[in-house]
Nucleic acid binder design. Sequence first.
DNA 1: CGATAAACCGGAGGCTGTTCCGGTTGGTAG
DNA 2: CTACCAACCGGAACAGCCTCCGGTTTATCG
Lengths: 198, 198
Amino acid sequence: MQVTAGGGAVAESGRPLRADARRNRERLLEVAVEAFSQPGRDVSLEGIAKAAGVGIGTLYRHFPTREALVEAAYRSEVARLCDAVPGLLEAEPPDRAMRTWTDRFVDYMTAKRGMADTLRAIVATGGNPYAETKARMREAVGTFLEAGAKEGTLRSDVDPGDVIAALSGITLSAGAPEQREQAGRLLDLVMDGLRPRT
Amino acid sequence: MQVTAGGGAVAESGRPLRADARRNRERLLEVAVEAFSQPGRDVSLEGIAKAAGVGIGTLYRHFPTREALVEAAYRSEVARLCDAVPGLLEAEPPDRAMRTWTDRFVDYMTAKRGMADTLRAIVATGGNPYAETKARMREAVGTFLEAGAKEGTLRSDVDPGDVIAALSGITLSAGAPEQREQAGRLLDLVMDGLRPRT
DNA sequence: CGATAAACCGGAGGCTGTTCCGGTTGGTAG
DNA sequence: CTACCAACCGGAACAGCCTCCGGTTTATCG
């Protein structure tokens, strides 16, 4: 399974995409992310194609299955989430910045429950589309932890992977919109666990 | 032992089903179980209806969604599996009988991978169709454990629920047909853990 | 610049899941 | 036994998924 990230400008063969193909791919991804964000809606692939101004065939050429599209959208959003880390660290002290970031993560996952189902199916099927994504998230969490450790407000002896597992667990068990408050409390709990023992 | 294992004669309202309705329901379930057992491929609901000699509308009246049908088929098969317990205990000593039974369980789940996906989806959606089914399985496992304990070949201090969790884990992680041997070894491992310490 | 081949585009078409409703039948009251 | 009505039957109709292929566009080379 080749990696060739979702936003890549390179096809599986290694050859650069033609300009029009690349434009279409980007537009599709953009619309897909938007569509999956709508809470109340079943997302129709035909609808996405139409909204992106391309035919259904074009959508399927870029994303051979619904899962491929969901996965690409997921990657794209995670990337955006992780890119936001430096900005957050400038605006707030590390521990608070990290809390803000976890909030965004949960918001993101709860808003996209529809695609969460598909993601679960992907995992169950055995494919591992997360390797790259997980690495990026580990990096993000690691950055927060390091920054916090330097100021003495966060522990340095925690595995970022464990934090990610905790976040995933929260979204899975309290991912419904009406449980948003509970999820918030759980996040507070996790953050408490990440502070150094006094 | 009617237990309404899918073949229930009573509608949700509590009113008895009409004779023809009941016949159709049973026939549908029978065909569905058969169809889901074919390793071959995707099961078409339309095909099930036709094979059962009823219209698609009738299928949907009895099982409003694909999930409902899968769930009913699952219950029905679990019931059959659990009903086999006494016979196995007569034919072999408890520990060996239990090993045979776990084999059947794994065979069943691997043969029905198609419906396993749907089952996962049901669980993920939060519905809990397993309460009743799980209780029956606990009972079956408990029976084996008790019988084995009486002969000193199995431990008596194990929670049946844990055993079930282990079995589920095995089917999830080694559920593909080509992993059948590995699954067998895992079952051996579990059985070893269930024997008393010497 | 013009021609050529590879790569891409879009939608028609086949298939399946699900809904809906007019016609039919089983069960029961008289 | 007959008549009646609620419940049930079957399939037509609609929508979304995915495949396939003729026509078009892009990039390259002389």
